[in-house]
């Protein structure tokens, strides 16, 4: 296992034949994906493509109906409590809305993983918190409450919290959604810096094309619960798959729909 060629680094995340359902609705219909060590993998797709469900399943928050997700060599859904905890300590997640605990200050939020998983003394934790907050240009906001910050600042604080344990694997859910172009570009820079400096493997789920093309090493495009393609930025740009081109060119999905089907859908006679 150890002597792999450099061109094929071992997968950090391995997804095999993943099927996920909500009730009786199948959201993901058999996904295979490999995320390699040290790469930025962007999972792209329009709304309803299943990318949020995919992320939740990768994080172990949603159990699959079929197939498996291996993170750092362990199945995240079936691992025992101790293994899962060990995995989580090596993973950082920045949620779309930040998901800072509203009852704690920004500093306390960033410190939370340290407090839960390390035995560092208060002073060291404070210094680490400040370092990470400086990384996202939030130095001096330590004592403020999440409610006092702007949306972009909450997102950046969540970013700091995600990286405070120096994780091997980082997940970002829509990092640039709802941010101004400057902040969004800064976050993109930060993602690349983390990859280069820390060799962190980074998974970004987004629908923002510009940011995706800028940061991705590889892109995986989801559509209607399946992987439409996985490849380099160039390969995705040049793909001749109509659905991918629709996504890239922001063409509505139902632009070509035959009149009869449309009428049936409107009148509800389509059983």
């Amino acid at each position: 296992m150890g002597n792999r060629a450099q061109t094929a680094p071992d997968p950090v995340v391995q997804v095999r034949d993943l099927v996920v359902c909500y009730g009786e609705r199948e959201i993901l219909k058999g996904i295979d994906l490999e995320i390699r060590r040290g790469e930025v993998m962007v999972v792209m797709g329009g709304s309803g493509s299943g990318k949020s469900t995919f992320l939740r399943t990768l994080l172990g928050l949603k159990a699959p109906s079929h197939g498996q997700v291996e993170v750092l060599g362990h199945n995240i859904h079936t691992a025992d409590r101790r293994t899962r905890l060990a995995l989580r300590r090596q993973m950082g997640v920045a949620f779309q809305g930040g998901a800072l605990l509203s009852s704690l200050s920004v500093g306390e939020n960033v410190r939370l993983p340290l407090r839960a998983h390390t035995r560092l003394d208060e002073n060291t934790m404070r210094i680490m918190t400040r370092l990470k907050l400086e990384l996202v240009n939030l130095a001096g906001f330590e004592d403020m409450m999440p409610a006092e910050l702007s949306g972009g600042m909450v997102k950046r604080a969540a970013f700091a919290r995600a990286v405070v344990m120096d994780p091997k694997l980082l997940f970002f859910d829509e990092p640039s959604a709802g941010l101004d172009p400057v902040t969004s570009a800064e976050l993109d820079e930060l993602i690349l810096r983390l990859r280069d400096a820390m060799k962190t493997t980074i998974v970004v789920v987004t629908h923002e094309l510009e940011s995706a093309f800028k940061i991705a090493d590889r892109i995986s495009v989801l559509g209607e619960g399946r992987v439409l393609m996985t490849g380099s930025v160039e390969a995705v740009r040049n793909s001749d798959d109509e659905r991918i081109q629709n996504l890239l060119n922001r063409r509505p999905r139902d632009a070509v729909l035959d009149g009869d089907a449309y009428l049936r859908r409107l009148t509800g006679t389509d059983a």
Binding site: R56, L85, R89, S103
Partner: peptide
């Protein structure tokens, strides 16, 4: 209401992901 809001704003998911 507090816990409900924590659920809808993914704060509970975030806790789980932090291993808390």
């Amino acid at each position: 209401a507090e816990i409900g809001i924590m659920r809808t704003s993914e704060q509970i998911d975030a806790l789980e992901c932090m291993g808390i």
